[in-house]
Design a protein around this nucleic acid. Structure first.
Lengths: 336, 336
DNA sequence: CGAATTCGTCGAAGCGCTTCGAACGTCTGG
DNA sequence: CCAGACGTTCGAAGCGCTTCGACGAATTCG
C-alpha cells in the first residue's frame, strides 16, 4: 500500500507538503504542486480513510437511515437514496446505509464511533423515537419529514399541505364542486406520519374555503380494497367529479375501478395523483399529477447537511413547493 | 469524546487490556473483564472507527454497489439491499452504499483507501466492465449474477436455468403442450444480462426435451405493449395454454390482456410468474410463481464475503435453488 | 539597507487504537 | 525446592494522516 510518505519521497518533499497539496489548506507553489500530483498519479496513491478520519476528526461519510415499514413506496425511497449518494459524492462524501431496525442504539453507535460526520433520516414520524436521541447526539443531522416538535432540527420535505391545496385549486378552476381524496393505508395515518395528514389537511381546508364539498379518507392497497372503496364512495356521494389519490400503489386499481363502475376519466371524473412522474405517465390515461420530488429532496438534504458540517447556519425547515403537471386525466366540468 | 485510555483509567487497567477485553484476542480474567465492561458502560464508550481501522487494517465496512439502470425491478433491489445491511450487522459490519455511476474509479477509490474491507456487486452483466477491475483489487468481493468469465470470482444468484425448467416441468405435469415465455424488455437481453438468458435457456431446453412446443421472447413494459404482445402471441399460436412471465412489471398487464382477449386464467391459460411472492399474491388470481429469493441472495452474499475476509475458501459459484409455489393461476389441461 | 513581512516548506507531535514482546506471579513436576 | 510453564497484565511501538509552529529565502517597506 502506498502511503503519503512514499509520495513525499518520490516527489522529494515532506509528507506535510503532500498533505497540503491534497487539502489546499496552505499555499503550495505551482511547481511543487505539479510534481506532487504527478507522483500521486504514478504511484496510484489513495489516502487511507481511517488515518485521515483519525487525524482530522472527519470521516467524510454520512449516514442515510432508511425506514423499513409498510406504507412506504419503495421506488421513491430508492430514487431518494440514489440522489443522496450522488449528491454526497459531489461533496466528496460517501454514504453509509442504515436501517431503522437496529433502533436508536444503532444511531448512537454510528455517531459516537465517528464512523459518520452526520446523518440523514428518512420518513420521520410525528412522534419519532429517534428524534429525541438525535438531539443528544453531537453530530449534525437532517430529517426528511417533520416530527411534532421540529424546533432545533433541520427538516426537508415536499410541502404536502400545498400539494393538497394545489390539487383542489386545479379542480376548482375546472369547475368541479365535489371531491374525494384517497390517501395512504390507515396504518400510515395511525402511525402519525406527517405527510399523509398534511396533504389531507391542505385538501380539506382549501375545499372548505372554496365552498366545495369534499371527503377524505385512507385507502388500503390491493385491487379489491380499492374497488370496494370506489363503490362505497360513489354510493355515498354520486355527485363526485374530482378524485385526488395520494398513494402510488393504488393508482392503477383506482383507474380500473372507475372503469368498472362506469365512470370515464376524464369525461365523468377528473383524477389527480400525488405520485412520481413515471407512475403518472405510465397510467392510462396519463394522469395529471403532483410529483413527489424525491431527487430534489435528497439533494437538498445533503446540501443542508454539508452546510451544517461547515458550521454554517441553515433554515430549520425547507418545504419544497409542489409542482402540478397537467396531463389527460383532468377536464373541465360543465354544470348542466 | 471518551477514549480507550479513559476507560482504562476508570477501570484501573492498561489500555491494551481494554482492547483485549473488546476483541477477545487474549484471555482476560473474568474479574477484570467485568470491571472493564462496567467502565465501558458507565462511560458510554464507543471505539473510534477510524483509529481502529488504522491500527487493525480493517474498517468493518463493506461496500454494496447498486446498479442504476433500466430493467431492474426496484423493490427487489431494495429487499436485497436491506437483507445485506441486516446480515452485515450480524457480522458487526456496516454497509457503504455506492452506485455504479461513479464508474470503476469509484470502486478503486473505495478499495484503495481502505474505506471498505470488501465489496458486493449487484446485477453483474455478462461483460461487466467492473469485473476485470475487481480482479486487480486486493479486496475480496462477491458478485450477484454471473459474468461471462467467472473463474476466480465468487458469484451468487438464483439458479435461473432451473427456474425456467421448473416452470416448464410444472406445466408439463399438468398436461400442457404448448407454452410461451414473456421475458424482460429487449434491452435487458441485449445488454447480455445473464439471468434473463439463462431463464430462457432453461425454459426452451426443458420444453424441447419434453417434446413440447414453446416460444420465448422479450417483452416491453407498459399496458399497451403487453396487450399487443399477447394478441400477437395467440394469433401466431392459438393453441398456447401455458404462459411463463419473467418480468414483474408486466404481470398485471398480462392478466388484463388475457382477460381482454377472452382467455380465462387458469381455465383456458395457466400462468406462472417468476417474481417476488408479494407480486404473485397480490395478483388476481394469485399466481403460481417461482420467487426471486432476494433476501436469501443478500444473506448468502454477505456470508460468503465474511468467509473470504476470514481467509477461508468459498465456492466460486452459489446457485440458489428455485422454489415454485403453486397458487391459483395454473390448472390441469384436459385434451379434448 | 536593515527590519519587518510574506511565501513556501519542513519537522514533529499527536489522533485513538491494536498488537507484540516482556514482565510478573502463581502453579506444576521432577 | 527450583526450573519451567502458564495465566494475566502492562508498556511501547507503530498504523497513515493532519496540523501547528518554525525556519530559511524572497520580498517589501520605512
Amino acid at each position: 500500500m502506498t502511503t503519503i510518505s512514499d509520495v513525499a519521497r518520490h516527489a522529494g518533499v515532506a509528507p506535510s507538503t503532500v498533505s497540503y497539496v491534497l487539502s489546499g489548506k496552505r499555499a503550495i507553489s505551482s511547481t511543487t504542486r505539479q510534481r506532487v500530483l504527478a507522483s500521486i498519479r504514478t504511484l496510484g496513491y489513495h489516502p487511507h480513510a481511517g488515518a485521515r478520519a483519525l487525524a482530522s476528526n472527519r470521516s467524510n461519510v454520512i449516514a442515510l437511515v432508511l425506514p423499513l415499514r409498510a406504507g412506504m413506496h419503495v421506488p421513491v425511497l430508492m430514487q431518494f437514496a440514489v440522489s443522496v449518494v450522488t449528491t454526497a459524492r459531489q461533496f466528496d462524501h460517501d454514504v453509509l446505509l442504515m436501517t431503522s431496525d437496529e433502533g436508536p442504539g444503532g444511531l448512537r453507535r454510528i455517531a459516537a464511533s465517528s464512523l459518520v460526520d452526520g446523518l440523514i433520516l428518512m420518513d420521520v414520524e410525528l412522534h419519532d423515537p429517534r428524534v429525541p436521541l438525535l438531539r443528544t447526539l453531537e453530530r449534525p443531522s437532517v430529517l426528511i419529514g417533520f416530527p411534532a416538535e421540529p424546533a432545533g432540527l433541520t427538516c426537508v420535505d415536499l410541502d404536502f399541505y400545498r400539494a393538497g391545496r394545489a390539487c383542489v385549486e386545479h379542480l376548482a378552476g375546472l369547475g368541479h364542486r365535489e371531491l374525494a381524496l384517497l390517501g395512504a393505508p390507515a396504518a400510515v395515518y395511525e402511525r402519525g406520519t406527517g405527510f399523509a395528514r398534511r396533504t389531507m389537511a391542505g385538501f380539506l381546508d382549501t375545499a372548505r374555503s372554496l365552498g366545495m364539498r369534499a371527503k377524505a379518507g385512507p385507502c388500503e392497497e390491493g385491487a379489491t380494497a380499492v374497488h370496494q372503496r370506489v363503490i362505497e364512495l360513489f354510493a355515498e356521494s354520486p355527485a363526485i367529479t374530482g378524485v385526488v389519490v395520494h398513494n402510488e400503489a393504488v393508482v392503477e386499481y383506482l383507474l380500473a375501478a372507475l372503469r368498472l363502475v362506469g365512470r370515464r376519466v376524464p369525461d365523468d371524473v377528473s383524477v389527480i395523483a400525488i405520485c412520481p412522474d413515471e407512475v403518472a405517465e405510465r397510467a392510462m390515461p396519463a394522469l395529471t399529477s403532483v410529483l413527489i420530488p424525491a431527487e430534489e429532496v435528497g439533494t437538498q438534504a445533503v446540501r443542508l447537511l454539508m452546510r451544517k458540517l461547515d458550521e454554517q447556519r441553515v433554515p430549520d425547515s425547507s418545504l419544497l413547493p409542489p409542482r402540478l403537471t397537467v396531463r389527460s386525466s383532468t377536464a373541465p366540468q360543465d354544470h348542466r
